[in-house]
């Protein structure tokens, strides 16, 4: 049965268990071609396991997955000919130089020795790695390693690229560089499956997002749809004194209810509000009570709030485990 031609990835009921852990527990995905598709989830959600099954590295326990029209179990080689993978662990050889890595892959992908060297030169230049071309990759900075890792996936331009947390651990500048590369790639027609735990990254790059948690897709849609599903705007307040944040939270809760919650930022608070008036009243309550604030803003709910609305807990919160411990 041929799958629809406009789908780069189509999975039904994908399952993978490691012992008692159901790492992927019935994932259905429809990833359209020609865009970034975000897979968003916290640590241990099953993102990497999903990618590894789609990239033919891991056999699913149940369910089916078609990648660019080919079944990952029955036709792994056909899949491999059209995909590339930049894994969560650096998927380049740390004991070789950057140029050597690209040249090796060029040879393995069918270029002649000369073509492989020329292609490696071209990518080294394009990815701003000229100064480090012959340096061993283990001596690269995190940002350079990531760029090389992505370049290694583009020795032959793939139809589908898997990127597993490409900006984890990068500084903002390196992160922006990676984002620019992803955008350039998509503008040339490559589909990108991007796994991330950063909500703003998915928001920035992806045209559709699947939110996964404990091996299941708990929401799917465009970033706009996901935000709309929360249905309210978000008021962000920054108090000046972190000591007084709890006090501020209590004051806000009087007008806005229990859903006022602290941000990871020690002076930040976020609360869903129905409209601008409700927000203005909440802010005046704070100033009336004499709690100095550094600033506030009213915006679309972030994906963090989407996650909170979907699961009842923030994406980055470790509290359940801490309570259990």
């Amino acid at each position: 049965m041929p799958s629809s031609p406009h789908l780069a990835i189509e999975t039904t009921g994908l399952v993978k268990a490691f012992g008692d852990t159901r790492a992927v527990d019935g994932v259905d995905l429809q990833v359209p071609t020609g865009a970034v598709y975000g897979v968003l989830g916290p640590n241990g959600a099953g993102k990497t396991t999903t990618i590894r099954m789609l990239a033919t590295l891991l056999r699913p326990d149940a369910g089916t997955a078609r990648v660019l029209g080919h079944d990952v179990v029955d036709e792994p080689d056909a899949v491999r000919r059209r995909i590339s993978l930049t894994g969560q662990l650096a998927s380049v050889d740390e004991e070789l130089g950057g140029h050597e890595n690209l040249q090796l892959l060029g040879r393995l992908l069918g270029y002649s020795r000369r073509q492989a060297a020329a292609r490696a030169d071209e990518l080294i230049t394009a990815f701003g790695l000229t100064a480090a071309a012959s340096r061993l990759v283990k001596n690269y900075s995190g940002g350079m390693r990531r760029r090389l890792d992505i370049a290694a996936s583009l020795v032959v331009t793939p139809d589908l690229l898997f990127l597993d947390e490409p900006t984890t651990g990068l500084d903002p500048r390196s992160r922006n560089e990676v984002w620019a590369i992803v955008r350039a790639l998509v503008s040339q027609g490559t589909t990108v499956l991007l796994c991330t735990q950063y909500l703003d990254e998915a928001d920035q790059l992806a045209s559709r997002i699947a939110v996964i948690d404990t091996g299941r897709v708990i929401a799917e849609g465009t970033p706009g749809e996901l935000k709309a599903s929360v249905g309210r705007s978000a008021l962000h307040v920054r108090v000046l004194d972190p000591e007084r944040r709890d006090e501020a939270r209590a004051i806000l809760a009087r007008g806005l209810g229990d859903s006022v919650h602290p941000d990871p930022d020690p002076v930040g608070l976020t609360a869903p509000v129905a409209d601008a008036e409700e927000a203005a009243e909440a802010i005046s309550a704070l100033t009336a009570a004499g709690v100095p604030i550094g600033g506030f803003s009213l915006g679309q709910p972030s994906l963090d709030e989407v996650f909170l609305a979907l699961t009842g807990r923030p994406a980055t919160d470790e509290t359940p485990e801490e309570v259990a411990a």
């Binding site: 270029y111 071209e122 990518l123 394009a126 000229t130 100064a131 760029r147 583009l154």
Partner: peptide, 20 residues
Amino acid sequence: STTPSEVALHAALASGERPP
């Protein structure tokens, strides 16, 4: 390292044809 240049990047991406 120098920031990857937009132009070189696009050129490099466009020329990655798949050999046999």
